[in-house]
Amino acid sequence: MKKLLIYILAITCLLSCSRDYDYIDRGFDGTSSYTGAYTRAYLQQICDNLIIQNLQALETVLALYGDQLWTDGVEQKLDNELAISGVTVRKTSADSTWTLSRSGDYPINGINFPTSYTITAKMAPTNVVTPNHYNWNISLDGNRVEDEGYSCRFASEGTLDYKNASVSYKKWNSIIGKVLLFVDKDGVQIDKAMLQFKGDPFNPFYANLR
């Protein structure tokens, strides 16, 4: 019994004496992989929220407001629960291109900050399998102003090809293209990152371009 007590006390002392100042800087190479992971998650959240939600909204309102929104130059502000509140949808040219724009508080990761964005979606030639679902060529440009002097700009590099013509929205299974993120602190750029979607269900490729 005494041995057991000694063992227990010895283990307790070992655990409490884990302060080892000699290790400082050792095993700590200054890389920022953990922050990269968070930046990646943040960027993917922007894409999830903005691109997917807005495309869903666009297809929904095209089905509902069909006659009005298929006319060039007609603008429609959406304030119903079927779409994202406050989005302005406008048919901009004869080749089936719409712009969706919105300015105001927008939740990303569940937190609201002033966010402005414009999504241009051009309906791509497709064999429509399911009514009201289309393929799209998308471009995205927007910015978001957060607290403590942080802000960011996000934009697609070229166009994002969205192959959606099925019943369900498959998110990143359906997208090919790149989205860029530029992060500013007090007006000075502090980070630049890129997320590349490859049209498969696996994690998109992330690169820090700083």
């Binding site: 922050t35 930046t39 990761n109 569940g110 900050f113 957060e146 607290d147 942080y150």
Partner: peptide, 8 residues
């Protein structure tokens, strides 16, 4: 969840 959280 925010930029301040990531970079701040």
């Amino acid at each position: 969840q925010t930029l301040n959280g990531i970079y701040g």
